[in-house]
Simulated assay, not measured.
Amino acid sequence: MAEALTAEAGAVRPRPPRRSSRMSTSMLPRRSALSVAVFLVPPLLLYGVAVLLPILQSLVLSFFRWDGITDMLFVGIDNYIKMFTRDDVFWIAFGNALGYLAICLVLQLGGALVVASLLTALPRAREVVKTLYLLPAIISTVAIAFLFQRIYSLDPVGLINQVLAWVGLEGLQTAWLSTVQTVLAAVSIPEGWRFTGLYMLIIYAALISVPQELEEAARLDGASWWQVFWRIRFPHIRPVWITTTIMATTFALRGFDIPYLLTGGGPGQASELLTTYMYKTAFVHTDYGYASAISVFIVVECLVAVGIILLMLRRRDDS
């Protein structure tokens, strides 16, 4: 009997550790939730104060007419009616913004993809190349603007016009920032060049994560380099490509500093963007209500652009 009781007691003893394990398991989600709150609440509060609150203030101010000094006058949606029906400069700036966006996307995404693909095949000096391409992203925008002013200059002769003279194309020399036909592309190229290295680094990190055995198997089956890229590499980096496209699109639609420093929107309105027009409406013409309406349109424009990108990619997935 004593041996049987001892055996039963021994069989029962392991139960207390199970309760402690259940207690530790039940406490883990609480600790995780607290950790998430500690790390997320401060940046979310900062984002709300620095981003969401100004957007809300601009939305409210867009329903008023205000010069910054006198009392605000409620005008309802008159600022939006003026923007869509009575302001020709707004539509010129909107068209220029779309052209600016197209040039920036081609240079940034196309250039980044090409450079990142070539970088994966580079046997050595990858770090040096990555650093050189990334440098423009950390250089001051004022320095970049002054640099390209010199590059585009006609008098004294800048780099582009000097190269044209060297190859015997003096007839193509022009003041690139003062010619209506070339100014939009001239202010777009610095912005595209500036962020190409940043997106190249992101895409390169995605490309080197592609399983090498899949590419080797495809090459053994006779696949060309294009088939390897389109069927294996690009599907693998597609989530990163979507994120990069959204980043490049929203940044380009909000581009301001380099175009404003180079031309201020001129000559005429040939390089006027929505952002430069909004700035001049607010701080030159002191029409803060109308400038707020333009800023609200820019926010909505960015949201619509992101929605279109996601919709197009979803349709492609469904097909």
Rank of each mutant, 00 (worst) to 15 (best):
I138M: 13
L164G: 06
Y152S: 03
I144G: 04
V167W: 00
S153K: 05
P156Q: 09
A137L: 03
I144V: 14
Y152M: 06
F148P: 11
V128R: 07
A165K: 06
I139C: 10
I138C: 07
V163N: 04
G158K: 03
Y133T: 10
A145E: 05
N161V: 00
V163Q: 09
I160L: 15
A165G: 13
I151M: 12
D155A: 15
A143Q: 06
T131E: 05
P156T: 10
A143G: 01
S153F: 04
L159M: 14
A145D: 10
V167M: 05
Y152N: 12
I160Y: 01
Y133Q: 03
L159Q: 08
E127V: 05
T131G: 14
L132W: 01
G158L: 04
V128Y: 08
D155W: 08
I138G: 13
A137C: 04
P156G: 07
P156A: 02
F146S: 13
R126H: 07
R126T: 09
V128G: 00
A143N: 09
R150G: 14
L164C: 09
R126M: 04
L154F: 07
A165S: 13
D155M: 07
R124V: 11
V163K: 00
P123K: 04
Y133F: 15
Q162E: 14
V129C: 09
V142F: 04
T131M: 11
L122A: 13
V142S: 11
A165W: 05
P123G: 08
I138Q: 10
A125G: 06
Y133H: 04
L159R: 04
Q149N: 15
G158E: 07
F148C: 11
R124K: 09
S140Y: 01
K130Y: 08
L154T: 01
Q149I: 00
R150I: 10
Y152F: 10
I151G: 13
L132P: 02
E127A: 05
Q149L: 09
F146A: 14
V142N: 12
L122I: 12
L159W: 05
P136Y: 07
P136T: 07
I139M: 15
P156V: 02
L154H: 02
V163P: 03
L122P: 03
V157P: 04
F148G: 09
Y133W: 11
L154N: 01
L164F: 11
A137H: 07
S140F: 03
P156L: 08
F148Q: 08
Y133A: 05
K130G: 13
K130R: 15
Y152L: 10
K130V: 05
L164Q: 05
P136C: 09
R150M: 12
W166F: 11
N161I: 00
L135G: 05
T131Y: 01
V157S: 03
L154I: 05
L147H: 08
A145V: 02
S153P: 09
T131V: 13
V129S: 01
P136Q: 01
L135Q: 03
R150E: 12
I151V: 15
P136M: 02
R126K: 14
V157K: 06
D155R: 14
T141Q: 15
V129Q: 04
L147C: 14
I144N: 01
V129F: 07
A143L: 08
V128T: 12
S153H: 05
L154D: 00
V128C: 02
Q149F: 05
V163R: 00
